[in-house]
């Protein structure tokens, strides 16, 4: 409850400041206008639609990153020889900022969900891959010997022994990847992909609808928070 005091006071000052003409009207809408813009965007369905478009791309990219990251991480973690061969390439690709791949992704996929998902997947791949790699390396050696002595095929070793044993730490990587996915999806939309929440925000800003932009920003904050809550369980 005490935590609500500061935001409430700020909101009241903000509203009063706008009405008194102290705050610049272009960049700071009144809280009351923001609430109205939010209600309107919710009512006409644009907010929900944009959220879904952003989610679609983020989840698509995340799914690719999760699948690839777990598979690659497990293979590299289980086979030091493959790790020595592939490791340097991973280290060379990893430092590339994902958003720097936006032009390339545009060239390959054009506008739309696929190029956005591709950039998201590149960004979200690394935490999953690296966490899986170290988690798999940390799996109790007895269990690996057990699965070898049972002559389990590679796939079953993975599904029955290695991944469950490593799951706790892989989950940490996945959680990081979810957060990154949302950030990158919105970024791609703000920069150039004409879809989703990010695009609507930049459109609102360019139309001088700062009330709508603030409404979307607050909504995005809520979505990020909610996503974090969901993945922490």
């Amino acid at each position: 409850m005490r935590g609500a005091v500061i935001p409430s006071v700020l909101l009241i000052l903000w509203e009063a400041g706008s009405r008194a003409g102290v705050l610049p009207p272009d960049s700071t809408s009144r809280p009351s206008d923001i609430v109205r813009a939010f209600a309107q965007a919710l009512a006409d369905g644009s907010l929900v639609r944009d959220t879904w478009l952003t989610f679609e791309a983020a989840l698509f990219g995340f799914a690719i990153a999760a699948l690839l990251g777990i598979l690659l991480g497990a293979i590299l973690g289980l086979s030091p020889r493959t790790e020595r061969a592939v490791g340097p390439s991973v280290e060379a690709l990893r430092p590339i900022p994902a958003v720097a791949l936006i032009p390339l992704a545009l060239l390959v996929f054009g506008f739309g969900v696929r190029m956005e998902a591709a950039v998201v997947a590149f960004a979200a791949l690394w935490p999953v891959l690296l966490m899986t790699l170290s988690a798999v390396r940390g799996v109790e050696p007895r269990l690996l010997e057990l699965s070898r002595s049972l002559e389990l095929p590679f796939w079953q070793q993975l599904v029955k022994i290695v991944l469950p044993a490593a799951f706790g730490r892989i989950a940490v990587g996945l959680r990081l990847a979810v957060a990154i996915s949302l950030v990158v999806a919105v970024t791609v939309e703000i920069v150039l992909n004409p879809r989703g929440l990010g695009h609507s925000m930049i459109a609102a800003q360019q139309a001088l609808r700062s009330d709508l932009m603030y409404a979307q920003l607050l909504w995005l904050g809520f979505v990020g928070w909610a996503l974090n809550k969901v993945t922490q369980r």
Partner: peptide, 29 residues
């Protein structure tokens, strides 16, 4: 190489059982 026809019982049972499987599940492996 290792083979199913040669079963191993390890000393450190806490590390050699699958903690996420029940007793029956471990035997099922």
């Amino acid at each position: 190489g290792p083979a199913r026809s040669r079963a191993i019982v390890f000393q450190d049972y806490t590390k050699a059982l699958l903690p996420w499987r029940t007793v029956a599940g471990n035997v099922a492996l």
